[in-house]
């Protein structure tokens, strides 16, 4: 993907406790484009602190892992969606598992998309690219249930 230089850099925030996955994600975003600015937090509490700090640089898009210590992804999602300042930030779930009921619940809670962490590095790149594309295409990010899950 190519982004025009005059466009401000896209601020992505990844919340994932797994160091390896964070590294893969960073490498993938680096390889996709230099137009992204990636911040990483390692658990739910850290995420909420990041978002609620005073002069917070609020992200354009949050990638949220579900299974995290201290505060789970689902709790974070609920908290963000109930906050006036934060509820507009689109959230893409980025998780190892793919449980039908959990996916449905997350959709109801207002997550924008769901990505099951791929095994192939190239697939990681593909899903992130797709997610960014969908995000750019949608000025007001909403999504139907059948396109909720992004496949690599």
């Amino acid at each position: 993907m190519k982004y025009k230089m005059e466009k401000p850099k896209l601020h992505l925030l990844l919340a994932d406790d797994d160091i390896d996955d964070c590294d893969f994600f960073k490498e993938a975003t680096d390889e996709i484009s230099d137009a992204c600015n990636l911040s990483i937090v390692h658990n739910g509490v850290e995420l909420m602190n990041f978002l609620s700090s005073e002069n917070a640089d609020l992200p354009n898009l949050i990638f949220l892992d579900l299974n995290m210590p201290r505060k789970s992804g689902m709790e974070c999602l609920a908290e963000i969606k109930s906050s006036d300042q934060l509820s507009q930030i689109p959230i893409i779930i980025y998780s190892t598992s793919l449980d039908h009921t959990v996916v449905s619940e997350l959709y109801q809670m207002g997550a924008l998309h769901y990505i099951q962490k791929p095994a192939e590095f190239s697939s990681i790149k593909t899903v992130i690219e797709k997610a960014l594309l969908l995000f750019n295409a949608n000025v007001t990010p909403t999504c139907s249930r059948e396109h909720f899950i992004i496949q690599p």
């Binding site: 390896d20 893969f24 190892t96 598992s97 791929p118 095994a119 590095f121 990681i124």
Partner: peptide, 20 residues
């Protein structure tokens, strides 16, 4: 299934990195 998936997935990702 879930917790076993995670290390396995990473093995696969590292393998793909190694190959690449």
């Amino acid at each position: 299934s879930h917790d076993l998936q995670e290390p396995l997935r990473k093995i696969q990702t590292f393998l793909s990195r190694l190959e690449e």
